[in-house]
Design a protein around this nucleic acid. Structure first.
Lengths: 420, 420
DNA sequence: TTATTTATTTTAGCACCTAAAGTAAATCAA
DNA sequence: TTGATTTACTTTAGGTGCTAAAATAAATAA
């Protein structure tokens, strides 16, 4: 009698140290580029013997490669370091940003580099749930067909959405880009593309990128406020986004400035967004100022730029409007400081174009609202807006989330390209 | 030649699994009371073989004991369970609550039971930093002399303070109980009593107790608002208190209701505390109503009870004052919901005496401020006030924090009683 | 050409955990 | 009463994963 099953006897299942160390190595390589085994050990607090063992496995799985020895290396005495790097084509991820009337599709490789980026103008506000799913499937398929040559597999998709999302149920709870509520989307994309699908708030993606900047390396508690058509926020607590009970935490735009104040898009009154968002600024200005024609409920970049220019050039009414916005923003930030006491508050988004016109009023509102003890040591800074940041954050988040899966998959099927 | 040092060769230092499992066993025993080895394994996801090994060590160190077999046990077929319990006298902790003109001292044993509790009336507002330290040392010494017979050691002291504390620097940054700022205290007590000294915000202690209640077992994101002389808050994120960058997070009392509103004790205007705290309610009432004489800036429980009774009995001005307080509280809670989206908001503290008079206005303010999507599924509830809860939470926190230390100590010196 | 230096790999051994086998202590059933 | 059964605890055997130290590799310096 022969026991065939004996070979795959599974002993203890809860020791995660090898798994953890392997992920740490992959992530170090992604953040730092090529690194030698000794340094991987030092950076992650493990012995180089262990790094040797881990890197041998990864090498065999095709997830990393040694840098060819002829590559110029910093010389010195002793045996030269053999640098290890991620194999960029071991996997790829796709990030789709969904915003009002625009979608952006970006492809990133396993090493975290952006390989492809494209923008599409689409009337998102009139889409049905099926339209949306079909649209996303089409764009992802197209990108896969064109760009995925040579990648081992599509590891994950990140959908970065303005508004409230529920990663748990995989649906968009509410977004200013859509005329719908509670749109399930993750499961359908996951079934179509056989990979993990992450649903993320756009501000969380941005926060992820900013938290990685060296300037904010020692800021585990980071608040990012996104000014734009609406106002979004992301709160990183010890470096991880805080989502709350239903994923609708950090709704800074709908925290209150004035009870019974200006009307907000949410239907209530006195929200910060009703004073400092693009639509609020344009609405306030349209009453008194001569401005470019266009959809004043959804002002374009040109329209907003024109308004901002008026304020910067000293037009009194425009200045008053921006000052009031700054004051609302300041009071809102004061509440954020009192409640979260973060290391840094960063203000970004397309709305930073008007930040200079708001800044003075914002700071004086904060000073009026808070004693210095509660201001603490928090820095409040603006950050130049770059519309590609969202997807870069999404790529990073997707890679981080799918690393464990990639590792598992390469153990079973090595070298089998199964895209689409 | 004999190698003496060889015996203490230290192999890997980062494998924490035994340590983690041991702490998990201790904490399970503290939470659940006597438990059998099999069940300890099942509850913590480890094999009963491992529990046997861990409990043998703990038994040998005197930290646990087997329940004598004659104890009545739930019978059934099979070998009966041998229940294990913590040895209560293996260590003790002291919690001191510092509030305005009162200190409370409580002693808890290793199993988490309160062994002794005492209150003292002291004029805290006029103490110098040295007075405070001397006072605390005196009270702790007295309690140790009387109560610590039979305990192996004093494992830790928890100082529960109203106000902002910095555990990192071990100093009280600001407290309404003191006329001082930045009072260093932890180091002095630690040196005097040779044990860990924790500095905690009183609301965090309460939150710790409430989070342990079965009713809130599935509420990892819990907000506790403490109404009283001032207004405090604690936010538990995934069960752990959120402290912020400087320990001054969760300052709900100084988040804003009305820009340029009522004057707050902090010196700014429009804080929630300036409407809904004891001093604010009494201040507003003293202008129009005939109330008991006394220090109206620090109203006593009798004074506040008299005012609350007026509102409950239908006195219109008192009702108006409580309604305005409820409205301020409601708008403040709306911001908390928008920013934290917790599972539950619990309102407690001595100020809940007036909760019924505020409740209606509070709920209508929340409804005015937030669309249902942002209300989410958050429950908002009051919790009957018990002034002993703070110290019970402090005892639990201190034990949890000192378990690792207790474990280490019992390995070196078994049975040596070194109190004081 | 040899010594030195530094990187990587191999070896030996510890700590920990688990599954399975062995032992203990009760109830159930005749 | 006695054996079968059941459940709890302990012991044994074996596996994973890590580290320190030794061995090996590959360069520079003299």
């Amino acid at each position: 009698m022969i026991n065939i099953g004996d070979a795959l006897m599974a002993f203890q299942s809860i020791d995660t140290s090898r798994h953890d160390n392997t992920l740490a190595v992959i992530r170090t390589l992604r953040e730092q580029g090529p690194v030698a085994r000794v340094d991987l050990g030092a950076l992650n607090g493990i012995s180089s013997a262990t790094v040797t063992s881990i890197s041998a496995e990864l090498l065999q799985q095709g997830l990393i490669a040694e840098q060819p020895p002829e590559t110029p290396r910093p010389s010195g005495r002793g045996r030269p370091k053999t640098l290890i790097q991620l194999a960029p084509e071991a996997a790829c991820v796709v990030c789709i940003k969904l915003s009002i009337n625009e979608i952006q599709v970006v492809v990133g490789d396993f090493a975290g580099q952006v390989r492809h980026s494209e923008h599409h103008i689409v009337s998102t506000l009139t889409l049905t749930a099926d339209d949306l799913a079909a649209l996303l499937e089409e764009k992802i398929s197209a990108v896969c067909a064109q760009q995925l040559e040579g990648f081992q597999r599509l590891a994950g998709i990140c959908l970065a959405v303005q508004g409230v999302v529920s990663s748990q149920s995989g649906s968009i709870v509410w977004s200013p880009a859509l005329g719908l509520r509670n749109v399930p989307i993750s499961d359908r994309l996951a079934a179509r593309f056989h990979c993990d699908v992450l649903l993320e708030n756009d501000a969380n993606c941005i926060a992820n990128v900013l938290a990685g900047q060296p300037a904010y390396a020692d800021c585990p508690n980071l608040v990012v406020i996104m000014l734009g058509y609406g106002i979004g926020m992301s709160v990183l607590i010890n470096g991880v986004p805080y989502l709350g009970a239903n994923g609708s935490a950090a709704e800074f735009g709908h925290s209150k400035y004035q009870p019974d104040g200006a009307l907000c898009a949410c239907g209530r009154r006195g929200c910060i967004e009703a004073y400092a968002s693009d639509y609020a600024l344009y609405r306030a200005a349209a009453e008194h100022l001569k401005l470019p024609t266009g959809d004043s409920a959804h002002p374009s970049e040109q329209q907003m730029q024109a308004l901002t220019n008026l304020a910067i050039q000293g037009e009194p009414e425009a200045q008053r409007i921006y000052a009031e916005a700054g004051r609302a923003l300041g009071y809102g930030i004061a509440n954020v400081l009192a409640l979260f006491n973060p290391d840094v508050v960063l203000i970004t988004g397309s709305g930073v174009r008007g930040f200079n016109a708001m800044q003075a009023a914002m700071h004086s509102a904060i000073d009026d609202a808070l004693v210095v003890e509660l201001m603490g040591t928090t820095r409040i800074e603006s950050y130049a807006w770059d519309r590609d940041m969202t997807c870069m954050g999404g790529i990073a988040i997707a890679l981080h989330a799918t690393d464990a899966q990639t590792l598992l998959d390469s153990q079973t099927k090595i070298g089998s390209a199964t895209c689409l």
